[in-house]
């Protein structure tokens, strides 16, 4: 029996396929079903509604033109859409900063940071993973690895920003991230969750 999430994926895949054929109604439905998730993803990383709106808009314009390329993606439709949005967010964040490593958020600023409603990155990491067996893998990460990965993933912090935020030397934070990702990958492969 198909689960609600398989149903949803099948529906979204169908809408993407019809969008590739320039079906405006399918595209509108795709937007209706996915925009709030994608907007939440963008808002959490960019922390400014107007920047998140721009990314959402650009991502959807791109989806209209490239929906056909989904058929070769080895990902669920929502995952594919999310990665398009995340990618654009990260591009934008990294464009904002100079090439040299600088602190873009200092103590005072972090006090006044854009208010993100709801759960913390760590809670999200666990809640988000609940849907699949990624959860176990995340749960198995060491506390410091987990925290570094969650902050980077949900708030778009760079290595330098992580080091500042966690009050740790840059090298330490880099190795937490690297080792955390290695373990996550090994665990996901072990669990058969590689797509």
């Amino acid at each position: 029996m198909p689960s609600p999430s398989t149903d949803r994926s099948a529906r979204l895949a169908e809408l993407l396929a019809r969008t590739a054929l320039a079906d405006q109604a399918a595209y509108a439905e795709l937007y209706r079903l996915t925009a709030s998730h994608l907007y939440a993803v963008a808002l959490r990383i960019l922390r400014e509604p107007s920047a998140a709106e721009d990314v959402l808009q650009e991502a959807f314009v791109s989806v209209w033109h490239h929906a056909g390329s989904y058929s070769t993606a080895k990902a669920k439709p929502q995952t594919w859409l999310t990665s398009i949005v995340r990618n654009r967010c990260l591009d934008q964040l990294r464009r904002r900063e100079p090439d040299t490593v600088t602190m873009t958020r200092d103590e005072d600023e972090s006090e006044m940071e854009f208010e993100t409603p709801g759960p913390t990155p760590i809670e999200l990491l666990v809640a988000g993973a609940e849907a699949n067996s990624v959860r176990d893998c995340v749960e198995r990460l060491d506390g410091s690895h987990k925290q570094a990965i969650a902050l980077a993933f949900y708030q778009g912090l760079s290595h330098a920003e992580l080091a500042h935020h966690l009050r740790q030397p840059l090298g330490t934070v880099k190795s937490w991230v690297r080792r955390g990702l290695e373990r996550l990958k090994a665990c996901l492969e072990g669990a058969g969750v590689t797509r």
Partner: peptide, 10 residues
């Protein structure tokens, strides 16, 4: 794709 799956349930 692997990491994007972590936003499920957000």
């Amino acid at each position: 794709w692997r990491l994007a799956a972590l936003t499920e349930g957000m």
